[in-house]
Simulated scan of single mutants.
Amino acid sequence: MTPYINVPTKTLVTPAQKTFAYRKIGVPDDVPVIAPIHLSGNLDNWDPVVIDGLAQEHQGVGGSGGKAAKTIQGMAQEIREFIHALGLKWGDLFGFSMGGFVAQEVIN
């Protein structure tokens, strides 16, 4: 398996014309892990040891790009849009710090 730090970054544009950058890593399964990060974080702020460990048994995606929403609810809506734009029905959420708060709002 390619380590997280070496996985190429891809981009995705949603129907609402929002651009997300993401990396896809791990073992394909039915439900991917989507990992929102802390305030001002980006794809490179995740510790590769954490992501590589999760990727041993799951497939994960993460993304960011453009101007962030100004509210937790807005960020949660953007994660929903990202999930649907990838063609996924859903995903497990593994948030860190503010990303955890956003992840909780996604499921509300």
Rank of each mutant, 00 (worst) to 15 (best):
T2H: 05
T2R: 14
Y4C: 04
I5S: 13
N6T: 12
T9Y: 07
K10D: 03
K10V: 00
T11G: 06
V13Y: 04
V13F: 05
T14L: 11
P15N: 09
P15D: 06
P15C: 06
Q17F: 04
K18Y: 08
K18C: 12
T19F: 00
F20Y: 14
F20V: 03
A21F: 14
Y22N: 06
K24G: 08
K24L: 07
K24Q: 12
K24S: 11
K24C: 10
I25P: 00
G26P: 01
G26S: 04
V27L: 10
V27D: 01
P28M: 04
D29Y: 08
D30K: 03
V31C: 10
A35G: 04
P36W: 02
P36G: 09
P36A: 11
I37H: 13
I37Q: 06
L39R: 14
S40V: 08
G41K: 00
G41L: 02
G41P: 02
L43T: 03
D44G: 09
W46S: 00
P48H: 12
P48N: 10
P48F: 09
P48M: 11
V49P: 00
V49L: 11
V49H: 11
V50P: 05
V50Q: 05
D52N: 15
D52F: 03
G53M: 02
L54I: 15
Q56W: 01
Q56I: 01
Q56K: 13
Q56H: 04
E57S: 05
G60D: 00
V61N: 02
G62D: 01
G63R: 01
S64K: 03
S64R: 06
A68E: 15
A68S: 13
A69H: 03
A69V: 05
K70M: 10
K70Q: 13
K70H: 09
T71M: 06
T71A: 05
I72W: 04
Q73V: 09
Q73S: 11
G74V: 08
M75D: 07
A76G: 10
Q77C: 04
Q77A: 13
E78N: 10
E78C: 04
I79L: 15
R80V: 13
E81Y: 08
F82N: 06
F82T: 07
I83Y: 05
H84C: 02
H84K: 12
L86F: 04
L86C: 03
G87F: 02
G87C: 04
K89W: 02
K89C: 08
W90Q: 15
G91E: 01
D92H: 14
L93W: 07
L93I: 10
F94V: 13
F94M: 09
G95M: 08
F96Q: 05
F96T: 05
S97W: 13
S97Y: 11
M98K: 06
G99H: 05
G100S: 07
F101Y: 09
A103H: 11
A103Y: 08
Q104A: 12
Q104R: 09
Q104P: 04
Q104D: 10
Q104M: 13
V106A: 09
